[in-house]
Design a protein around this nucleic acid. Structure first.
Ligand SMILES: [Zn+2]
Ligand SMILES: [Zn+2]
Ligand SMILES: [Zn+2]
Ligand SMILES: [Zn+2]
Lengths: 155, 155
DNA sequence: GTTTATTTGTTATATTGTAACATCTGGTAT
DNA sequence: ATACCAGATGTTACAATATAACAAATAAAC
């Protein structure tokens, strides 16, 4: 699944956006948090917490689960990453501060995740919740299957 | 959130439907599996695996995590229950064999879950996945918030 | 009745996530 | 400057969720 032409650009953009938002919101974008965000942006596949811990421990021998989960909490709270609930894993957000919620396409084969935020889905969900008189706080939409590239590959 | 007028009826219907499907499909609806399904249908709130284990151990002193997870696997595979991924919990399916996927409304306050399967949402998702040339295997849609009853209560 | 497949029992362990308290660090007020 | 404070990180311990592997029991098929 070709997600990007130049993944170095994905990473640097994500880092810059996060840096800018942290400056604006007077948040501390510490080295640890930067390292975590960069590691999560290693690719477009979701990263697992204990995998991130292992990578982190290469640089930072004293890293512990709490180290990782606290950084993840920070990154989640500020919208720099998302938690993929069906995988218990974490993925970078392509456009933090643009919206709270993301819809995901998750390729079971190449593991890559892409966002598929779409206003038609949003309005269909809104209509349903309104009909049910339900007040939405948070929506999780995770669509698993095969991306185009992978489905061609297996044919 | 009033989900049902007579929850005894929810339970007995769910048990009968499961029983019928098992007969049709030549599946073994053992006592353990019946107990598990009944426990999951204790209410309309999701049940956690280790909570079910505790309840199970009252009757079956030798029950272990594997006991529970194997039964859950059976019930999931055959569509009698769903896993709520955002909660790591399990909820009974109101209409097994009608569809593979369910959309859920999850009240953070009273914890009750209702299904909100809706063809408009389905077609909006289908349009998006088609546009992305993505081949869907499984869709997770979990909408958290407050049900009407609970949101009135807190006003 | 013996074989076979499925289910359940049992033990052990892997994976994911938090709680609680100590220490450090960088900014604020006196 | 220095005492203070808040936020971040270190550290230890543990809770919660889930699976692997193999043995024993049970039910189905022959
Ligand atoms: Zn990229
Ligand atoms: Zn793929
Ligand atoms: Zn009911
Ligand atoms: Zn409610």
């Amino acid at each position: 699944m070709i997600q990007c032409e130049d993944h170095g650009l994905c990473i640097s953009t994500a880092m810059e956006v996060a840096d800018r938002i942290c400056t604006e919101k007077r948040l501390k974008f510490t080295d640890l948090r930067k390292d975590m965000l960069r590691m999560i942006w290693d690719g477009h596949a979701p990263q697992k917490a204990y995998g991130l811990l292992s990578k982190l421990q290469v640089k930072n021998h004293s890293a512990k689960p709490a180290t990782v989960y606290r950084s993840l909490d920070f990154l989640l709270e500020n919208g720099f990453i998302h938690k993929v609930k069906s995988l218990n894993a974490f993925v970078g957000c392509s456009h933090p501060s643009k919206h709270d919620e993301c819809y995901f396409l998750i390729c079971d084969s190449c593991k890559e995740i892409s966002e598929c935020c779409d206003s038609n889905i949003t309005s269909a969900i809104k209509a349903t919740t309104k009909r049910n008189q339900f007040f939405v706080k948070n929506t999780t939409l995770e669509i698993a299957g095969h991306c185009n590239a992978c489905s061609k590959r297996t044919e």
